[in-house]
Design a protein around this nucleic acid. Structure first.
Length: 453
RNA sequence: UCCCGCUUAGCUCAGCUGGUUAGAGCACCUGACUGUUAAUCAGGGGGUCGCUAGUUCAAAUCUAGCAGCGGGAGCCA
């Protein structure tokens, strides 16, 4: 990897590299955007960022040089600066660049530039989605987002999982996972209705039954009118699927995944997570690190209900076997009882999707939700129903139509295997790691109900 | 979709029970300043107080409706 330069741009140096391993006295050329600038009679300072690190590079400018540029070196201007790397007398940075030449590549009028050198609210930044990537927070968030995606792929690739690209356009709401966005001209074009996908799981099962270990990682769409800090109409989802695997295998994979990916992402972006822990959610990333380092707890739904009954708490929503676990119940278990991630398994079949494997008692299914403090459910997984007759029964007892599911039943007719996997909201995991509270702040251009774009 | 809250300068906010020309900090402009770290100091410009209607001698302030935003809940990832 050539972190230090861009292909074909020989002299240009990334600030991250420069601050790590450049040599004192070295001649450097830096490109980036002015973050803040201070001018005085004898010496002036311009801080430049280029997106490679949360740290800015301090450029020192002598009076002769600053005169020509002072009015063009305000916040936001794009610059190309050459100079010598020298030790900095200031306490805040080890090095700085003594400027020799300055080129204003792109002017930026400070009186109308919406971004401030002062901290601004995340709410305001949402009104300038096109410029907010330059904010400290979004600089860090989108480096972390990139790292998380990278580490997720690395985790699966190292284990021999194949990345399968399941369709974005799909024919029917087979899973019942929320409202779909219809494609308005689908009937004319395809000859039948079509929608934006809500999950690639059913399709990826075909590839688990051919390539054994596979996963999806792509965009997903929900037309739910959910106006909350945790929901978006367009988000990314990860769905691994394994053949010759049962619920225990799914849970083991989930735990390894959460632990390894979380730690690797925080290591890859150590500076950014230091920023999150200082400015966004004090102490939060360090807590996540501790929590994922311990073994995760595991209880059944039945045991969870017993714990809730024994809690002595008054909950807003009813508890007891057969009731659905509400956010307040999940938070109580993850935050107070276990104080860390907990797998809850074997939910009543009525509460879960049709494809989940019916347990021997006929009352519960081999499903699991991973609950974590603050966020609630992060991962939902299950062993799938691999018995054709039982699956048919589960489809019928829900009043679902089987016409569109014959291909899915075929997987159970020709070389069926026990199999399973989980689904993970990419942005939810990113929020959990970084401590960013609103999903709109971890998506470049968030699509939510009522959004105009 | 339901409940609650908010909306005053480019940004973050103050403006008590209605009462003269609407305030601060930051940003911006001008000047000063021997190394700053969201520099500092002095001066300046900048507002139809979300919109509409109403109550009143008088509305940023009270009432209603609408809109936008935020928080909680549901749905879920």
């Amino acid at each position: 990897m050539r972190e230090e330069t861009m292909a074909g741009v020989d002299r240009r140096v990334r600030i991250s590299h420069l601050l790590k391993s450049a040599q004192i006295g070295q001649q450097v050329e830096v490109t980036g955007w002015v973050k803040t600038s201070r001018f005085s009679k004898n010496v002036s300072f311009v801080h430049v960022m280029d997106g490679s690190t949360p740290n800015t590079l301090q450029v020192v400018i002598r009076p002769e040089l600053v005169e020509a540029f002072q009015h063009r070196l305000g916040v936001g201007a794009a610059v190309r600066i050459t100079g010598t790397l020298v030790p900095s007398p200031g306490a805040e940075q080890p090095f700085e660049v003594a400027a020799e030449t300055i080129v204003i590549v792109g002017d930026s009028d400070p009186s109308t530039y919406p971004m401030q050198k002062k901290a601004t609210s995340l709410e305001f930044l949402r009104t300038v989605n096109h410029l907010r990537p330059r904010s400290n927070t979004h600089q860090a968030v989108f480096r972390a987002r990139n790292a998380l995606a990278w580490q997720i792929h690395r985790f699966f690739q190292e284990r021999g999982f194949l990345w399968i690209h399941t369709p974005i356009l799909t024919g029917a709401d087979a899973e019942g996972a929320g409202e779909l966005f219809p494609i308005s001209n689908a009937v004319d074009f395809f000859g039948h209705p079509a929608f934006l996908t809500v999950s690639g799981q059913l399709e990826v099962e075909c590839f688990a039954q051919s390539h054994t270990d596979v996963y999806t990682f792509g965009p997903t769409f929900r037309a739910e009118n959910s106006n909350t800090p945790r929901h978006a109409a367009e988000f990314w989802m990860i769905e691994p699927e394994m053949a010759f695997a049962d619920l225990d295998d799914v849970i083991a994979l989930t735990e390894d995944f959460i632990r390894e990916v979380a730690l690797a992402t925080m290591d890859q972006c150590a500076d950014d997570f230091a920023f999150f822990g200082k400015r966004i959610a004090p102490g939060h990333p360090e807590q996540v690190r501790q929590v994922v380092s311990k073994p995760f707890a595991r209880i059944t739904y039945t045991e969870a209900q017993e714990l809730l009954a024994k809690s002595g708490r008054t909950f807003e929503f009813p508890i007891g076997w057969g009731t659905s676990m509400q956010a307040e119940h999940e938070r109580y278990l993850a935050e107070e009882v276990f104080q860390g991630p907990v797998f809850v398994t074997n939910y009543p079949w009525e509460q879960k999707a049709f494809y989940m494997r019916l347990d021997e008692d006929g009352k519960t299914v081999a499903a699991t939700d991973l609950l974590v403090p603050r966020i609630g459910e992060v991962v939902g997984g299950s062993q799938r129903e691999e018995r054709a007759d039982v699956l048919e029964q589960q489809i019928l007892r829900r009043g679902m139509h089987m016409d569109h599911l014959q291909w899915y039943l075929d997987l159970r007719r020709f070389g069926t295997t026990p199999h399973g996997g989980f689904g993970l909201g990419f942005e939810r995991m990113l929020m959990w790691l970084t401590g960013v509270a609103n999903i709109r702040d971890v998506i470049a251009f968030p699509r939510v109900p009522g959004a105009s774009f």
